[in-house]
């Protein structure tokens, strides 16, 4: 864990500091939205990470489901990764929702609306809230299996979130990046996007790694206490 911190933390802080400088001081003020558009440099990377990390959770959950009987040690490691990435997804999802609402109020005139993009993204947030509640409050030996099944629903929701602004008419703008002819960023805005994408990615990977290591320690401690209890009998 010390190694993760000593490499990951400085790297994340440097990237995020450059990202902050680029987003707030270097990137030009946007023509129609003004200063508030700078929130894009935080809204977009968080939202992208909120669509990326569910797949770490999904793959880890599949590994857990496939190996839970045949290879329990591997299944436990996969489950620790699934838990760590689920928590990280919820953080990114929350930042995406919060920055989106703060941005919507001044430029759309509303905090929230039930269009396909906002609704499907809220669903993703709710799925991970219920995932973590499920892990914490269910008793018995089925918790990990049930959680792994729930992660499949998140994996189904992610493509819907991504495609929602392409499939349907939404309040949310159609894709700015990778959109059609009448979309895109001015070249002077790209550095702020790249630095923040890199920064939030490294930050996320570092936290997932730390959380994974912590969960492994907890698993080992629990195993030991079970063994000790058995030996005492």
């Amino acid at each position: 864990m010390k190694k993760t911190l000593s490499i990951g933390l400085p790297l994340a802080l440097v990237l995020l500091s450059v990202g902050f400088y680029q987003a707030i001081y270097v990137a030009p003020t946007e023509a129609t939205m003004g200063q508030i558009q700078r929130i894009f440099y935080y809204h977009f990377p968080s939202a992208i990470m909120a669509l990326l990390f569910p797949y770490i959770n999904f793959i880890a959950s599949l590994v857990f489901l496939a190996t839970r009987n045949s290879n329990p040690p591997r299944a436990q490691a996969a489950d620790a990764l699934a838990l760590a990435s689920a928590e990280m997804t919820l953080i990114f999802c929350s930042i995406g929702l919060a920055t989106g609402m703060l941005w919507a109020r001044p430029v759309w005139g509303i905090w929230w609306t039930w269009d396909e993009r906002l609704t499907s993204f809220l669903m993703l947030w709710l799925i991970y809230v219920s995932y973590l509640l499920l892990r914490r409050f269910t008793a018995g030996g089925q918790t990990q299996t049930l959680a792994a099944v729930l992660s499949i629903f998140a994996a189904i929701d992610v493509p819907i979130v991504y495609m929602s602004i392409r499939w349907w008419r939404t309040q949310h703008p159609s894709p700015v990046i990778g959109g059609g002819a009448n979309s895109g960023l001015d070249p002077s805005m790209w550095p702020a996007v790249w630095w923040n994408l890199a920064g939030w990615f490294v930050w996320g990977v570092m936290l997932v790694t730390l959380r994974y290591q912590l969960e492994r320690k907890r698993q080992r401690a629990q195993q030991e206490s079970v063994l000790q209890a058995l030996a005492a009998n």
Binding site: E30, G34, W108, N182
Partner: peptide, 26 residues
């Protein structure tokens, strides 16, 4: 009973000389 703006997907810098809008004031 409600009017909402819909934002473009194209972000361009404010032109030099043109005073950038202050959205924060509301």
């Amino acid at each position: 009973t409600q009017v909402q703006a819909k934002c473009a997907s194209k972000y361009a810098p404010a032109k030099p000389g043109e005073k950038p809008r202050q959205t924060a004031s509301m």
